[in-house]
Structure formats: C-alpha cells, structure tokens
Nucleic acid binder design. Structure first.
Lengths: 186, 186
DNA sequence: TATGACATGTAATCTGTTACATGATTAG
DNA sequence: CTAATCATGTAACAGATTACATGTCATA
C-alpha cells in the first residue's frame, strides 16, 4: 500500500470528528492554527482523491439541486486503522530531526482517536528519546564550537534550547494530562 | 529569474566559506547538524546544476588523472548578491508560520556573509515580529480552548511555548552577539 | 582481488505550488 | 444585476525521494 503523506494524515485526523467536505478542510487550514498546511485546492482535492482510491475514506455527494454540490468525506475502517497505527508509532531519533511538526500533529489527534493511555505513551516515548538526544547535541556543540562563526554557533544553540524546551513541554504535558484524566471525566 | 529553494540557499551559504564539491556538500548534510537537509545525490546534484544554470555558481573540474574527477563549485558574484539579499530580508509573520528553520539558516550564515550589523538587524526584526505574534497566539488559544480535546490543546500550547522560547533565545542572542563583537575582535 | 570510500549522475515517481477555470448561491 | 462567497476541480511546473548506474582509487 502506498505511503500516506503528512497532509493525508492531517485530513484523516480532521475527518475523525465528523465528515468534512474538501472546502471545509481548506477552511480549517486557512483559518485556524493549522495554517502550516496548504489550503490550496491543488493540494487538497488530489490528496482526498488519493485517500479515496486507497479505500481510506468514502465520499458521498450531498443531494442538492445544482449539478455540482458539496461532497462529504468520511473515514472508512481502513482509514481509521491507518490513523490509529500512525499515532501509536513510537518516536525515533529521525522524527526528532525531521518531523517535530508531525509529532505534534499526531499528539493533537491522539486523545480523540486512540484515547488517553496511548496519548500518554506517545509523550513518554518522546520524553525518552529526547533524554538521550539532548546530550548528543551538547557534545556536538562542544566539538565544533571553535570552528564556526558566532552566528552559526548561536543558531546551533537555538537547536539545543528548542529541543530542551520540547522536553520541558513534554513533562508538563504528561503531568497535566494525567491530572486532567484523574480529575474531570474525559 | 527563477526562485531559489531553501536547499539552494543552504548550498550557496556553504560555498561562501570556500569552494565545495557536490560530495563535500553531501557529507556536510549527512554528518553535521544540517541533517535536516537531504544528502541524497538526487537532490544535491540537480540543485547544483540549477544554480549553475542561473549563473549563481561556477563549477570547475579539478584536473586529475581519471575521466570523472571531482568538480569544485564556487560562488559567482550574482550568487553572493542573492545570498546577501536573502539574509537581509526582514522577518514576516509568514516566516514565523512556515519557515522557522529557514530563519535559523539565514542567521547561521549571517555573520560570515554580511557581517555583524545586519546579523543583529535580523535578530531585532525577528524579535519585533515575535512580540506582536505571541499575543495573537494567546488570543487564539483563549478562543478555542473549550472546543478542542486535551491533547489538541496541549499541542497548541507547545506552539505558544516554542514561540516564546524562540523570543527568549532571540534576546539572548542579541545580548551575546553584541557583547562578543565589543569584546573579542570579529 | 575484493571491499569500501570517493565521486557523480539519471529515471521513475510522488507531492505540492501557482494559476486558471467552472459554476451555484446569496446579499446588496 | 453584480459581486462575493461557496465549492470543486485541472494543468503546468518545480522539487524531493528512492533506487539504480557508473566509474575511480586505496588498502587489506
């Protein structure tokens, strides 16, 4: 089976709550904090068609008067399975390097799609990976410190601080999440 | 003139220090903290060819015995001009949303390519943009807080914390940079 | 002489971007 | 009636990924 792109997963995740039309999804990308994904029709409609061809979603034309009415897409069982599998994947070093955004996307959908326990498992996996990665970054820094310009060094320092910030958020998120599910009902 | 991709600018920046071969550049991407860029030949060699076609770099085959020896690329004057122009661009809201990595890449090259004053100007531009952006994020948070799941809310909180972390780094970088150029000779 | 590092490239495929095109419905 | 918004799409193009192909040079 063909790989599912990041945009594909974003679409699947958004459809989990309730069926959406291509236009709805575009609006979400253009108006909310998911602006990092493209709201262009040239990205969304082909992506939806691909998901449909793979049997991950089903589209149904709403009956209406006109010739071209809106089409609602809903998650099909294989699509839900793929979404769950993706969210449950453990975090790897590679994810930290290439795909911090993707991690957040996965976590954002986690509670709704797979529930509290796997969501917390995702955070713990992230925490573990970060704990071994941060010392590596410090070590790299020490190695090259002397050979690079001041601005390059500061940029690298941001890489470290940003990663440390992610770790601190992860710990905060674990605590907050655990408190919340103990306190209020999910 | 055709747009220069992020990878293109990364290549131009790396060539600024001294001429590099395609292989050298691949090694930099695969072995240093620039792992976020692809080290695959299918990305680098075509990118180098494009830069050459645009007259931004010149390639010279090192004279050697064999038939196929390494080719060294060096920045041509228009390439240096393009690199400088790119680094000096002020930071926009759009950059904050889409291209934090690109900002860091620009800053990493800044000291070497355009010197201290424009490097600090870049940081100040970043600081200014962040100061107006962070309140917007908090406002967005307040608006949707109630309508989203706990994990989605925490993910959004990371967006805010990450941005605040960037601001704090920016201020630290300005101070450190200014001290350093006052103290040691650049 | 076989392995691995050096060194450069191409081809197929996929995805995304920009720009354009179409047509329905609603508000002024 | 006209403009804006709803709604869906296509076409041309750019760029990246993966996998493959080629050949040199040093060394064990």
């Amino acid at each position: 089976m063909r790989e599912i792109s990041n945009l594909g997963y974003a679409l699947l995740g958004l459809m989990h709550k309730h069926p959406q039309s291509g236009y709805d999804l575009r609006k979400i990308f253009s108006s909310t904090s998911m602006k990092t994904y493209s709201d262009s029709p040239g990205a969304i409609y082909p992506a939806l068609r691909r998901l449909q061809e793979q049997g991950l979603i089903n589209g149904k034309l709403e009956e209406g008067s006109g010739l071209r009415r809106r089409q609602l897409f809903r998650l099909a069982p294989p699509g839900l399975a793929a979404l769950k599998k993706w969210i449950r994947l453990p975090i790897t070093r590679k994810d930290l390097l290439w795909a911090q955004q993707e991690i957040m996307l996965r976590f954002a959908f986690a509670h709704q799609v797979v529930g509290a326990a796997p969501a917390i498992a995702l955070l713990k996996s992230l925490e573990a990976e970060l704990k071994t990665y941060i010392p590596v970054l410090h070590e790299e820094m020490r190695t090259m410190k002397s050979s690079i310009s001041i601005s390059a060094r500061l940029a690298f320092e941001f890489g470290i601080r940003g990663t440390e910030c992610l770790l601190s958020w992860t710990r905060y998120a674990i605590t907050t999440y655990e408190e919340e599910i103990r306190g209020g009902t999910s």
